[in-house]
Measured scan of single mutants.
Amino acid sequence: MSDQEAKPSTEDLGDKKEGEYIKLKVIGQDSSEIHFKVKMTTHLKKLKESYCQRQGVPMNSLRFLFEGQRIADNHTPKELGMEEEDVIEVYQEQTGGHSTV
């Protein structure tokens, strides 16, 4: 019986991991920090939209990076291997420009 009891508790931990929340720091170019608590399985588009709304800027005017890689709207913290207190960097999107060649 103890084996049966242990097995469901392991499964519960697996389920808990799926719905687990982590805190992420979003740091802007001006070094301002906003902290977000997100589920591991939530699409990061929600975090990006919330950040842009707080900053009063359109979402397409900023780019969000985690460990140097651009974050897509459909990425989740779990897919990117994010952990508690990880940092997302935000930069002004640069458009235009010309070749110097």
Rank of each mutant, 00 (worst) to 15 (best):
G81N: 02
N60R: 07
G14N: 13
P77S: 03
Q69H: 07
P58L: 09
E79S: 06
F66W: 10
Y21K: 10
M59T: 14
N60G: 14
K25N: 11
R70I: 11
S2E: 14
N74S: 14
G14H: 15
D30H: 07
C52Y: 02
L13S: 13
Q4P: 10
K25D: 00
E93W: 14
S32G: 12
K45C: 07
E93M: 10
S32H: 05
K7V: 05
G68A: 01
V38G: 01
L47H: 03
N74L: 13
P58K: 12
R54W: 00
V26F: 05
Q53L: 11
S2R: 13
E11P: 06
L13E: 08
Y91N: 05
E33V: 09
V26R: 05
G68V: 02
H35I: 10
G56N: 09
K7E: 12
E11T: 07
M59D: 15
E83S: 14
K45E: 11
E85T: 07
P77T: 03
D3L: 08
R54C: 09
R63H: 09
L24R: 02
Y51H: 02
T41Q: 15
S9C: 11
E83F: 05
G28C: 01
G96P: 09
V87A: 13
V90T: 13
Q4I: 12
V57T: 04
P58R: 08
E89K: 06
Q69I: 03
E85C: 14
E79F: 02
D73C: 04
S31A: 15
I27Q: 05
K16E: 11
Q53V: 09
L47V: 08
P58F: 01
V38I: 15
H35G: 06
T42L: 09
Y21L: 08
T95W: 14
I27L: 15
I34D: 01
G97Y: 03
Q92M: 14
V26C: 12
I88E: 04
L62G: 01
K48S: 01
T95V: 15
K23L: 13
G96W: 01
S50T: 15
E18V: 10
M59S: 07
A6I: 11
N74G: 13
K45A: 13
K48D: 01
E5F: 10
L62S: 04
M40K: 13
P77I: 00
D15E: 12
M40S: 11
I71S: 03
I34S: 05
E18R: 11
K25C: 04
Q92R: 13
E83I: 13
E67Y: 06
F66D: 03
G96A: 02
S32M: 08
E93I: 04
E85F: 15
K16T: 11
K25L: 00
Y91G: 05
Q55L: 11
D73G: 02
G56L: 06
F66V: 02
S50W: 11
L44I: 04
Y51A: 02
F66H: 13
G97E: 01
G14Q: 13
K25F: 04
Q4D: 04
E67H: 03
N74I: 08
V90E: 02
Q53A: 12
K48P: 01
E93S: 10
Q94T: 08
Q92F: 03
Y21Q: 13
G96Q: 01
K39Y: 07
R70H: 15
S9F: 08
L80R: 02
K17R: 13
K37M: 05
Q94C: 10
K16D: 07
Y51F: 10
E33H: 02
F64Q: 07
K48A: 02
R70W: 10
S9G: 10
L80T: 00
T42M: 07
E89C: 00
K45S: 10
E18Y: 10
G81C: 13
K39E: 05
V87T: 14
Q69K: 11
N74Q: 08
T76L: 01
V26N: 00
E33C: 03
E20H: 08
K23D: 06
K78G: 15
V26A: 14
K45R: 12
T42Q: 14
A6W: 13
V90Q: 03
D3S: 11
A6S: 11
L62C: 14
L62Y: 10
R70C: 09
A6E: 08
Q69S: 12
E5H: 07
M40I: 13
Q4K: 09
T42S: 09
P58S: 12
I27Y: 04
Q29N: 15
K48N: 03
R70G: 12
E85H: 08
Y21S: 11
K37P: 03
D73Q: 06
H43A: 13
D12E: 09
I88T: 03
Y21W: 11
Q55G: 05
M40Q: 03
P8F: 12
L47K: 02
T41I: 09
H75A: 10
N74A: 10
N74F: 13
D12A: 13
M59I: 10
T10F: 11
Q29D: 00
S31P: 08
D15W: 05
G14Y: 15
G96L: 04
P8N: 06
L62H: 10
H35Y: 12
E67M: 14
K23E: 10
G28D: 06
S50Y: 04
E20S: 14
G56S: 11
G97M: 00
L80H: 03
Q55D: 09
S2Q: 11
H75W: 06
K39H: 07
R54F: 10
P58M: 00
V38M: 15
E5M: 14
E83W: 07
E33T: 00
M40T: 13
V38Q: 02
V57I: 14
V26Y: 02
E49M: 09
M82R: 04
K37W: 08
K45P: 02
E20R: 14
G68L: 05
S50E: 07
E79H: 00
E49R: 14
L24Q: 04
E11H: 09
